[in-house]
Write a protein that binds this DNA or RNA. Sequence first.
RNA 1: GGCGCCGUGGCCAAGUGGUAAGGCGGCAGACUGCAAAUCUGCUAUUCGUCAGUUCGAUUCUGACCGGCGCCUCCA
Length: 471
Amino acid sequence: MTAPDFRLYNTLTRKVESFSPADGKTVRIYTCGPTVYRPAHLGNFRTFLFEDLLRRAIELRGWKVKQVMNLTDVDDKIIKAASEQGTTIAEVTAPITKIFHADRAFLRIQDAELYPKATDHIPEMIEIVKRLVDKKLAYKADDGSVYFAIDKFKDYGKLSRLDTREVKAGARVIQDDYSKENAQDFALWKAAKPEDERTGAAWDSPWGRGRPGWHLECSAMAMKYLGETLDIHCGGIDLIFPHHEDEIAQSEGSTGKLFSRFWCHGEFLLTEGSKMAKRLGNVATVQDLRDQGVPAAAFRHFVFSTHYRKQLNMSSEALEGSIEGVRRIGDFVQRLAEAKGATPELEKIAADAEAEVTAALFDDLNAPIALGALFTFIRKANAELDRNGVDKRALETARKAFGRINSVLDVVPESVGADPEIARWVEERLTARKDARSRREFAEADRIRAEIESKGIAIEDTPHGTKWRLR
RNA sequence: GGCGCCGUGGCCAAGUGGUAAGGCGGCAGACUGCAAAUCUGCUAUUCGUCAGUUCGAUUCUGACCGGCGCCUCCA
């Protein structure tokens, strides 16, 4: 049996290409992480969920993953916040980093192998700048900062395909960079300002006190932990330019080697029809999800219901559809767990579903197709389970197939446990209802049911007794 | 101004040069004391508009309309 093809869209070539790790075993992925000055919003998490899907699909394919996600803990906004609060950047970033990991855990985003911080890699960054200066690809300007000279790097623009001469009307204005030789040159090392010193954001370097430019940390940490040529580099679509373009320039400029074989970018999450962004004030966070009682599984379902390269508009209607969808998945899982057997037909239904899901995921992470196949599986399997078969092997096959499908999507809602007091009350009421029903006093039974449901609890009568759950 | 993406049923969303997956919602039926859950059937003769290519286009080409994004520090 030949190994299945694994296809991914590569921004570098603008094509879906066949992918496999360079060493045949471990996929080395670098994913641009959050700037920890405020809790990441759901748009950020859409990207992180796409990366989670990628790593899980790779693992399902049978490869190992070594993923590095950086935490940007020094940048203009962090310095500004520290400056305003009269503290240091470390004091700003520490609590936000904790929130990030908690939010990530809530959304069941798997741990990357490493979460390096920019401030822990200043020497590595300085080393890259040195090499670039030696190669005359970078220069120290009058303002004390070091800039990358983009016209010395012939491949500049190969990722974003932006013609640097065409940056014109409508574009955000280029400001206050008089010292640069070329307006498009970007900072590798920024000369320290008083507030940098005050907030602990300045380090010694061969060019004087200063701090790293934005792009530098990713080049330094990616190459340190994953080697000079990565398998895949991911991020949000807005990072293509300038961030990733500049990473390529720095990295390839300093090593002379290809920086990343594949570049993969996730599209935006929109709210109210436009990009979710802090500066637009339309951000929602994981905390909002918690407050609204949206299960993590439902948000995963919602994100995966649209292909990662397509914009996704968040609406309460769509979110509710996902909540209902994962409720159905959860009921199915429970049914699968409680079944004693199944009809033999279930065996093929499960195998077909798994094959379809796998094929979809390996074809540029087509999660919407995978979800479609999962729901078809659930409908057909429920129909078989309705027939009360006794085939244990078919049942076991279905359980395992579901398990593998869910190992990538992870869309089973967490079972919400009621507190013991409520549970005792519900059990007592259900007993009363059962007595009423056995006396055929249905009006009383229905009254009790309404009483239970008014507390936000759903009940359903089954051949094996009455079940209930919070809803 | 340059570059790019998108427009499929009430909502969300796949998809292919050969005649529209799936989910949510709705309607009807089976089951149930009644519900719920589950299952079954129905719910787009049509894929923004107009042309063109083709035996045939939602799928290719062009124009137009509409939405979104990038063009230096935003996932």
